[in-house]
């Protein structure tokens, strides 16, 4: 017991110490889109200045034509097992059969939705609304002949790798 109220310290390191996080999203598979989005959202909720840089296949996460339609295939992923059936392996050859990617994508989307975790476009809305910064890679845009109007509206700009390195000075960095 003390006369001074015991209060959680909310504004300690992150907001005052200027903690920054940079996340490079380079994959366009459904399962690889989520780690970056979830960590970005968590960091923003902790008051951390957060920047996401979308490059190569990661462009599919912010391309208006693909962002709502990312897919999951377990081809090449030997860790895949049917939901809840740990230790039961799925034949790799089956992953290549027509229609299997659609099925596994549907299954994964359902599991994600069951946790009340949003789909990619809505997740971007959440991150954008929380003050997260979204950047697109210049070289990828040039390769894919994409322009700002092709990308999610919250993307602040198409910038070079050097520009991204410059604006994330002092940041912790994740490459996904």
């Amino acid at each position: 017991m003390t006369d001074t109220p015991f209060v959680p310290s909310f504004d300690s390191d992150a907001s005052e110490g200027g903690r920054k996080l940079a996340i490079i999203c380079s994959k366009g598979n459904l399962d690889m889109a989520y780690p970056g989005l979830i960590l970005a959202n968590a960091a923003l909720g902790e008051g951390v200045e957060t920047h996401l840089f979308f490059t190569f296949w990661g462009f599919d996460m912010i391309n208006k034509k693909t962002m709502d339609d990312l897919k999951f295939s377990y081809l090449g992923n030997t860790a895949m097992h049917p939901p809840g059936a740990f230790g039961v392996s799925m034949p790799q050859g089956m992953a290549g059969l027509p229609g299997v990617t659609a099925l596994t994508t549907k299954m994964m989307k359902k599991q994600i939705a069951d946790l009340d975790v949003p789909e990619v476009p809505e997740f971007l809305d959440l991150i954008h609304g929380s003050g997260g910064h979204l950047w697109a890679c210049r070289m990828s845009a040039d390769m894919m002949k994409l322009h700002e109007e092709d990308l999610y509206d919250g993307v602040e700009g198409i910038i070079s790798a050097s520009d991204f390195i410059e604006l994330t000075e002092g940041a912790q960095l994740l490459f996904i």
Partner: peptide
């Protein structure tokens, strides 16, 4: 909107 929650409870809105 999430943006409003950040404005009302700046920094760490969920915890605050």
């Amino acid at each position: 909107p999430v943006k409003d929650l950040f404005a009302l409870f700046p920094g760490k809105p969920a915890k605050k």
